[in-house]
Design a protein around this nucleic acid. Structure first.
Length: 234
DNA sequence: ACAATCTTTCCTGTTT
DNA sequence: GAAACAGGAAAGATTG
């Protein structure tokens, strides 16, 4: 468990878990998380200054910075000190960094589904000079994580994928090709299709990241090795 | 450079 | 017949 190790020793995934956890504690929408700017391991994370955090995550950087500092010194985070309301307010003051979407030529008419483009404005503001550890073009998440993150943001992401059974982790693709296009966009592969995406999904059965749900088309279920999708994980 | 992972691509066959 | 589902094979990409 990431709470048990010093941040310095965290893997990229543990950094990711910490990010998710921190935001969950404050009941913030997961689309607010600039995951792309934190595709780094604990070592790199610990070298980030408050300024670096601010660059990478806007005003949320402060929250993250505090949380990390607590962990460094106390071995646990003092998130309780912040009230969700305070944070919320802080976040709301953020310009529309979180929503700078343009209606470009996304296939399949998937308006406003570009959670992937969140990084664009950040990169712009991160600019040139930095010697900070924030990666420029991170390629962090795996397919199942990508799917999960879409699922975790129903309000920002229209009917691409939807929960069939939230507690069981069962979900269904509503716009399979649109999801494939989005995935392709993330991987910089414009020829991605659901056909190919689903092959990758089927490989997850063996690894128990997904469980089979038979008889129902476009329906999948998270398996024991998929993390971070449960409500109780919050 | 290497090897382990995780896809991506392609394909043939089956099912809904 | 059109989409999905199933996996095998092999190539490609990333990362430790």
């Amino acid at each position: 468990m990431w709470q048990e190790t010093h941040p310095q020793l965290w893997s990229k995934f543990q950094v990711w878990e910490w990010l998710q956890q921190t935001f969950d504690v404050h009941q913030l929408d997961a689309t607010c998380i600039p995951f792309q700017n934190f595709d780094i391991d604990g070592g790199q994370l610990c070298t980030m200054s408050l300024q670096d955090f601010t660059r990478a995550a806007g005003s949320m950087g402060q929250i993250l910075y505090h949380s990390l500092t607590e962990l460094k010194w106390n071995g646990h985070c003092g998130n309780e000190l912040f009230s969700p309301v305070d944070i919320k307010t802080e976040i709301d003051e953020l310009p529309c960094m979180l929503h700078p979407f343009k209606e470009d030529s996304c296939f399949y008419d998937c308006t406003n589904t570009d959670l992937l483009d969140i990084k664009a404005p950040y990169q712009a503001s991160m600019g040139q000079s930095t010697s900070n550890p924030v990666t420029q073009d991170p390629r962090g998440t795996h397919l199942w994580e990508f799917i999960r993150d879409i699922l975790l943001n129903p309000e920002r992401n229209p009917d691409l994928i939807k929960w069939e059974d939230r507690t069981e982790g069962i979900f269904r693709f509503l716009k399979s090709e649109a999801v494939a296009q989005l995935w392709g966009k993330k991987k910089n592969n414009s020829s991605m299709t659901y056909e190919k995406l689903s092959r990758a999904m089927r490989y997850y059965y063996k690894r128990e990241i997904l469980e089979r749900v038979d008889g129902r088309r476009l329906v999948y279920k998270f398996g024991r090795n998929a993390r971070g999708w449960r409500e109780s994980d919050k």
